[in-house]
Design a protein around this nucleic acid. Structure first.
Lengths: 223, 223
DNA sequence: CAGGATCCTTAGCGATACTG
DNA sequence: CAGTATCGCTAAGGATCCTG
C-alpha cells in the first residue's frame, strides 16, 4: 500500500517533500540519473530496500510524475526512467551529495552503487584541459558505461562506446578505492578485483583527474 | 526517542539523507533559514508536527551538527539556529522549493509559514534596479522582519529596521494573497486583514516587484 | 505559557516467503 | 525477473501531563 501522507503546506519545499520526501525516494531518483534501470538493477543498487517498498516507491514516483515506466525499446525489458520534471532534480541531488560528504560516515559495512561512483567521478574529476580527449569503457555491476575525458570535462553515458582507449571492469567499491589511491591499480589488476583491457596509462589519467585536478579543489573519494 | 536509521550507503546523497532525510527535518531547517526560532515558534510554523516529534528532530539535528541551541543573546529565550554547515543547505532548499512549485497542490486547508512567504518573496521578487532603495517593515505571526529593496535585489532580515518607509502587518496567507493579486490590497486594509502604516505606495512597489519583475520570469505566488 | 516528557494508537517500514 | 502477500517492528501522529 503506497504512502499518502502530506505536509499540507503550500510552500514549494513542503510540496517537493510530499513527492520525494518519503524514505528511499531520492535514492531511487539517484539511481536513475544516468540511465533507465530495471527493477532488479534498482534492488541490486539499493540492497537494503525491501522489494515491496521499492514497488511502492516506484508506483508513487510514477503517479507523481517523477518517473515513468520505460517505453520498452524494441522488446527490451521493462525499465524505469526519469521524466522531464524528475530530471530537474539532478542539480539538487548533486548539491545535496556534495553537502553530505561532510556528514559523519555510517558504520561499515556500507554499500556503494555504480551510479554513486559515477556521480562522484563526474562531479570532482577535473582533467587537464590541454590533454588529448580520451574514451574509457567502464563495466560496473554488469552494466557498461562510456566515460569521456575531453576539454577539461568528464562525461558519463550509459552503454557501450563506439570506440575506447581502455576498458575497466571492477566493482564500484574497487573503483572508488582506486579513485582514492591510484597507486593500488597494479595490485587490483594482479588480484583480479580490477580487469583492464587496452591502454593502462589511460586509466591512470582518469584516476589522476580526480586526485590531481585542474585546478585542485579537495575530495579524494566518495567516502 | 530519536531515530537512528541509516541507509548504510557511502554515497554523499545517502549520507545527507541520513542526516536530514527524516520526516519534518528539512522543514525545520527551512524555518531556521532567515532567523533563529524558539520551540513554540517552530510549532506555530509547523502546526501539523507533534511536540514530541519536533523535540526529537531538534535533538537529532543538533546531534548531527545541522543546528545548535542558541547561545542565548543576553538572557533571551532559548532558540535554535543553523550551524555553518546547516546554513549550506540554503541554496539546496531554495532549489528544491522551486522544483516543488510544479508539484500537485495539496488539498486545502493548507498551512503557510511566515518563512515560506519570505523565501518566496526573496526568491522571485525582481525590483526595478533603477528605482530608489526602499525599506519595509513586515510583521508576520508576531515577528518583525526587515525587507529591503535596493539595486534590483530583495534582502530579508530578522528584526526591526532602524528606519522604514512603510510597515505591514498581516498573516502569511494574506501576504501571499497580496503577492498573488496586489489589487486586493485596498480590500485587505479595509477589512483589517492587513494593517499598513506609512507610505502605502511602497507596499505597492513591493507587490509589484513580484508580479511585474525586472525582467519577467514567471511565478505569481507560493501556490 | 514555554519547553518539553510520557503515554497510546496507527501507519509506514523491513524481512521473509510466495507467485505469475 | 518482477513483483505481491504476510507479518512483526518501529517511527509517526495525537493527546495528555509534567516542570520551570
Amino acid at each position: 500500500m503506497p504512502t499518502s501522507r502530506s505536509y499540507r503546506d503550500s510552500c514549494g519545499i513542503a510540496r517537493a517533500l510530499d513527492v520525494v520526501g518519503e524514505r528511499w525516494a531520492l535514492l531511487v531518483v539517484r539511481e536513475l540519473l544516468f540511465a533507465p534501470q530495471r527493477f532488479s538493477e534498482l534492488r541490486h543498487a539499493l540492497p537494503h530496500i525491501s522489494s515491496n517498498l521499492l514497488a511502492d516507491r516506484l508506483r508513487e514516483l510514477e503517479h507523481n510524475g517523477v518517473i515513468r515506466r520505460g517505453l520498452a525499446p524494441a522488446e527490451g525489458p521493462q525499465v524505469y526512467e526519469l521524466t522531464e520534471w524528475g530530471r530537474k532534480l539532478e542539480p539538487i541531488l548533486l548539491a545535496l551529495g556534495d553537502w553530505g560528504i561532510d556528514a559523519p560516515q555510517p558504520p561499515p559495512p556500507t554499500v556503494l552503487s555504480a551510479t554513486s561512483v559515477l556521480i562522484f567521478l563526474q562531479g570532482v574529476a577535473r582533467p587537464d584541459p590541454a590533454a588529448p580527449p580520451m574514451t574509457c569503457r567502464l563495466e560496473l555491476d554488469g552494466r557498461v558505461w562510456t566515460v569521456r575525458l575531453a576539454s577539461g570535462r568528464v562525461q558519463v553515458q550509459p552503454g557501450e562506446p563506439t570506440t575506447a582507449d581502455v576498458s575497466l571492469r571492477a566493482e564500484p567499491k574497487t573503483l572508488n578505492a582506486l579513485l582514492a589511491d591510484p597507486a593500488t591499480l597494479a595490485t587490483a589488476c594482479a588480484d583480479g578485483s580490477a580487469a583492464v583491457v587496452g591502454d593502462l596509462s589511460a586509466i591512470g589519467r582518469l584516476l589522476h583527474a580526480v586526485n590531481d585536478p585542474w585546478p585542485s579543489d579537495g575530495h579524494t573519494s566518495v567516502s
